[in-house]
Amino acid sequence: MSSDILFYLFAVLTTGSALAVVLNKNTVASALSLLISLVGVAALFVLLDAFLLAALMVFVYAGAVVALFLFIVMLLDTYGGDRKPFKKATIVASAFALALLVLGLMTFTRRGSLETSVSAATTEVVPVGASLRAYGEQLFTTYLLPVQIVGFLLLIAMLGVIVLSKKFEGLEDVK
């Protein structure tokens, strides 16, 4: 099937460029690999019929967030070469994490509980990320609490950045 070929194509593209983000010495090239990876994820969303999510992914992450990353990278002028090689502890930890991930995926596919739950949904189910209405309804009913919590987390992070980056003169208690 053609959608299977497309899935493999975009899956390889996404994971390959995600690897390139980590392994690239040049920070700008890393950011651009992240961009390709995000576009690949958006393409995977399209294959799942979640067109709205795909458009949002490209608009917010690929269009704005990576552009901000590039802006910061260029502003700090971190050209290639000054990235330190990985420490031994990092390598051990990442190997362990990879083993855990593979193990988790293996048990997930071996037990096959995912397959039954998908086939149980016999009738045409509208994907949540497909249309505006389906997406909005889920966001404001089923996932209301997670959305609020994530929003709150972002707010805290933003306040933290402001506190960290701003110099408060004569305000000892804020420090």
């Binding site: 961009l35 490209v58 269009g63 990576v66 552009a67």
Partner: peptide
């Protein structure tokens, strides 16, 4: 497509990378 405007915004927002690059 149903998400016409969002698609225009999404794709045209990628235009900035040409200038940055």
């Amino acid at each position: 497509v149903d998400i016409g405007l969002l698609a225009v915004f999404a794709v045209s927002s990628l235009g900035v990378y040409a200038v940055i690059l």
